[in-house]
């Protein structure tokens, strides 16, 4: 098995081989999740704490379900309304939780790098469930699994990522993953929502949907945050939809069998037309949600194996 990581903080530190290992194992969990009895004991006896400093329903429930199906004891902590309000620092919160001996810590935080900081202070495995505009590794992995299952491969594809790239951790993780797996990545969006220096990552940057979507195999739409719609970054919602919203006309520039993805939750009529989102021949948005649980199971399983091995070595005093 070629997965050596202690934590899953980002795609940046994963080798292509490790990504493949996760996806292969996730494929098995997809099968398991489709059965009536969806339970293994991979994490039996282990404690998983979900710490969400930013509100999330989808990601948190996906992680919760993944942990429960693996047999872990799962605890959800909604940090937005807890000790943080009382002025406790992130590190103190981490140390407090660490003292309860969790085995897996799933963390989402609004500041880039916050999960890295936390991981440096605890003894358990940490999974990044999204930090600021930095990374959201499990999202990129579930997108990769969705693509691999739809297209039969995750190499030599042309993938267009469209919308608010600048504020998106999903875009960053996907960009890095798809690059590592040798795909051609295009970024499409208004220049106000494009991060500086992004062309140096080895992707192509477009501000025109027709040109950017030409012959794409995969079209990934990103969510546009409500607070960014009016005047600040773009003139208005309707102008954005007109120029960058995915509708049948724009999608026609992509390959005829191109798939459409969205990390959710969608703003129908802002970044994506409702009929495209519901088109079962093109849209794989529901599959993404399904793959999400399987990928998170695979990640936690692999991290737990490494954690057990590490603790075993420590207990027997084997030098590594």
């Amino acid at each position: 098995m070629s997965f050596r990581a202690r934590h899953l903080l980002g795609i940046e530190h994963l080798a292509p081989d490790e990504i493949r290992t996760i996806l292969d194992l996730a494929d098995q969990y997809v099968d398991l999740n489709r059965r009536t009895v969806k339970r293994t004991d991979a994490l039996a006896g282990m404690t998983q704490i979900n710490m969400f400093f930013e509100n999330s329903t989808r990601t948190q429930s996906s992680f919760e379900l993944a942990g429960k199906r693996l047999g872990a004891d799962v605890m959800n902590m909604t940090m937005a309304q807890s000790s943080v309000k009382k002025g406790e620092t992130l590190i103190d919160t981490a140390l407090t939780l660490n003292a309860m001996h969790p085995d897996l810590l799933v963390v989402r935080h609004g500041a880039s790098g916050a999960v890295n900081l936390l991981a440096s202070k605890v003894n358990c495995a940490v999974l990044n469930a999204g930090d600021g505009r930095h990374e959201h590794p499990t999202q990129a992995l579930l997108d990769a699994l969705t693509i691999r299952r739809a297209k039969g491969r995750i190499q030599r594809l042309t993938v267009a990522i469209c919308g608010d790239i600048a504020h998106s951790r999903v875009a960053r993780s996907n960009l890095i993953l798809l690059g590592k797996m040798e795909n051609r990545v295009r970024l499409i969006g208004p220049p106000t929502l494009m991060p500086a220096g992004v062309a140096e990552f080895g992707c192509e940057v477009y501000d025109d949907m027709a040109a950017g979507l030409k012959d794409a195999d995969v079209v990934m739409m990103l969510r546009l945050q409500k607070e960014r719609m009016d005047g600040g970054f773009i003139p208005s919602e309707r102008e954005y939809f007109h120029r960058f919203g995915l509708d049948a006309e724009k999608l026609a520039h992509a390959k005829p069998d191109a798939i459409v993805m969205h990390p959710g939750p969608m703003n129908r009529g802002v970044e994506i037309d409702g009929t495209i989102a519901d088109d079962i021949n093109r849209s794989v948005i529901q599959e993404q949600v399904e793959m999400g649980v399987a990928v998170r199971m695979a990640c936690m399983d692999l991290l737990a194996r490494n954690l057990r091995a590490e603790r075993g070595r420590a207990a027997t005093g084997v030098m590594v």
Binding site: S112, G113, G132, H134, E135, P195, A196, G197, E200, F201
Partner: peptide, 15 residues
Amino acid sequence: TTGKFASLRGLPGVS
């Protein structure tokens, strides 16, 4: 400072 590194780390930058 804005640039490739700032974008990679997801940190707000200034030109």
